[in-house]
Amino acid sequence: MRELPDISELLSRAKAGDEAAIREFVAEFEPEVRIMVRGRLPRLLRTQFDSMDFVQSVWESFFTDLRERSQDFENVRHLRKFLAAVARNKVFEQHRRLTRTEKYTLAKEERLYVRRGGREVGRDFPSPEPTPSQAVQAADRMAQLTAGCTPKEVEVIRLRHDGLTNEDIAERTGLGERTVRRIIEAARARMEGRR
């Protein structure tokens, strides 16, 4: 790697916000930072992140730090060591977050495609929605529950089916809580009698 003629002059221009200096600086060191990141990126994270995500994070930290604090680098080698340390810390921090914390653990993730024979096949995932046959069964059960009921009783049963509490149903329908409870218990007894 060639040495830059005057690193301190380029850094002071970049610190002052000179966009040409920042572009020159990034153009000079980005290939090295990318190599630093790729060398430290664990195999586990390679499927989750592009190395350029980390490179951008390194530059963000570097230039923020440069503006906020006076970073003095003895020479280009010192600067490269500093950039390597920032890259290492960014990768390590993300790896630790995704492998050692319960909230983001990669062990919970499953591949969307699995290899079967010589090709990749999409994995079947259960839907949170009921299957068509479950929907028909639920509709039949609701028809049985509400058979012979008054419109108000049907409303109470449907609201209970939708997950409302007795108190919420009473408030919504204008009935007393005891009446709501009596209607629901009578519907439950009718269903148990049919089994």
Rank of each mutant, 00 (worst) to 15 (best):
R46W: 04
I169M: 02
P42D: 06
R96K: 12
R97S: 11
I184S: 03
A147W: 03
A27D: 15
R119P: 01
L175Q: 11
E155T: 06
E110G: 10
F125S: 05
D65K: 10
P42E: 02
R141P: 06
N75Y: 00
R160S: 04
L79Q: 01
E167Q: 13
L41D: 01
A138Q: 12
P5I: 11
I7Q: 01
G174S: 09
S57P: 01
F54Y: 07
V180H: 05
M36T: 02
K15G: 05
P151I: 08
R43L: 08
R88F: 13
T165F: 04
L164P: 03
P126R: 12
T179A: 10
A14F: 04
A143M: 12
S12W: 01
A20G: 14
E109F: 15
Y104T: 13
M36F: 07
E192Y: 10
E153M: 05
L175M: 15
S133L: 13
L106G: 09
E171N: 13
F49A: 02
R178T: 13
R13F: 08
N75S: 12
G118L: 07
V26W: 03
E9N: 02
G176P: 03
T150Q: 11
E192S: 11
R38T: 07
R13N: 12
V26I: 15
G122N: 07
R160M: 03
Q134A: 15
I169T: 04
L44V: 13
K81M: 10
E110R: 15
M191D: 14
F25M: 10
Q56A: 05
E155S: 04
E32R: 12
E110F: 08
L11R: 06
R97N: 13
S8G: 05
E129Y: 14
L10N: 08
I157M: 15
Y104I: 03
A27C: 12
R182M: 11
Q56M: 00
G193Q: 15
E93K: 08
F125I: 14
T173W: 01
A143N: 11
D18G: 02
R67A: 09
D162M: 10
K108Y: 14
V91W: 00
L79S: 00
F73D: 05
R141V: 13
N89A: 09
R77V: 10
V76M: 15
R80L: 09
Q144S: 13
A187T: 07
F63V: 06
W59N: 01
L79M: 09
I35V: 12
T47M: 08
F82T: 01
A135S: 14
R194M: 15
V58N: 02
E93Q: 07
K90A: 06
I7D: 00
E32K: 11
M36N: 00
E60D: 10
G118S: 14
I169R: 02
